[in-house]
């Protein structure tokens, strides 16, 4: 099982790397925002696999914090990245 955890963690990291191509290339700002989504989910999966590999409760808690922050950072990111012209019907 230990080998499988490590193998899949590496596989998911490669996945993340491939996804970064889209994030860097765009073409729209919305495409770049997909990074928030991609990172959130994949990082949590990798951390959970590593936690199992190392048998470490602490790493699993890191995954939990990542999951919590994923929502907050992503929303902040979407708002910041479009800052300026947009959203007349937002509550301000």
């Amino acid at each position: 099982m230990q080998h499988l955890y490590l193998l899949l963690a590496v596989f998911l990291l490669l996945n993340l790397g491939a996804g970064m191509w889209r994030v860097l290339r765009g073409p729209t700002a919305a495409d770049r925002m997909l990074a928030a989504q991609l990172f959130g989910t994949t990082a949590v999966a990798v951390l959970l696999l590593l936690a199992e590999l190392e048998n470490s409760v602490a790493l699993r808690d890191v995954a939990l914090v990542f999951a919590l922050l994923a929502a907050v950072t992503a929303i902040a990111f979407v708002r910041r990245a479009w800052a300026g012209t947009e959203d007349s019907n937002d509550t301000r």
Binding site: T28, A29, A30, M33, L34, A36, Q37, G40, T41, V44, L48, R60, A63, L64, A67, L68, A70, A71, A74, I75, V78, W82, E86, D87
Partner: peptide
Amino acid sequence: KLVLIWLLVLLAGSSVSHLVSRSALHRGV
């Protein structure tokens, strides 16, 4: 705890996909 982590990611994922698509539509993508 594992299930909790999954639920949090679900919540983040669905909210973010809504926000990003809404912003994209507003910006005329």
